[in-house]
Design a binder for these strands. Sequence first.
DNA 1: CCCTGATTCGC
DNA 2: GCGAATCAGG
Length: 189
Amino acid sequence: MSWSEERVELLRKLWSDGLSASQVAAELGPGITRNAVIGKIHRLGLAERAKSAAGARPRPAKAPRPQQAASAAPAIAARNGGHGGHGPASHGPVVHGNVALAFAPQTMAVARVTPEEVVIPMSERVTLMELRESMCRWPMGDPTTPEFRFCGAHSPIGGGPYCAHHASVAYQPAQDRRRRDALRAPRYA
DNA sequence: CCCTGATTCGC
DNA sequence: GCGAATCAGG
């Protein structure tokens, strides 16, 4: 992998946009590491960035709290904390089942915010390369375009795939299944 | 432990 | 010039 003019140009753009070195590396594709980016940045003399970008939070750590549905989320974590099975594959289905219980009739009325109503800025979303085990895997955008991203918020739901907010929608009760499925599995022409 | 950028130094 | 390894820090 060499630094073609194209790559350097993209590097300059993304870096000046305030993306972190690892984020830039992910955008440039496999074969370009965070270290490679940082090294190049220094060689290009781009080390000093505008403070606005440096002070900003490049990390997608905090997703906006789902105002009311959040109260149901801890119940899910509590339930999952107790059993023995480890590893994503083993507890996935269990999470699903327990969540259905967590959203008992008295609590499920609160899950009225859809993912589309919660604005997660592009800068906080993550690409597949940036997605970590600890991040929310909720897909955002059209997967057939380069703009496709994942939510990326750190998922507090005991080892589950989604952040509290998206879990609240993903696991809506059966009566809302039609709307839920429309949100989860959009068709792309 | 997750991440950040900075620096060194063998290639 | 390049970037993995390492460092110092949040």
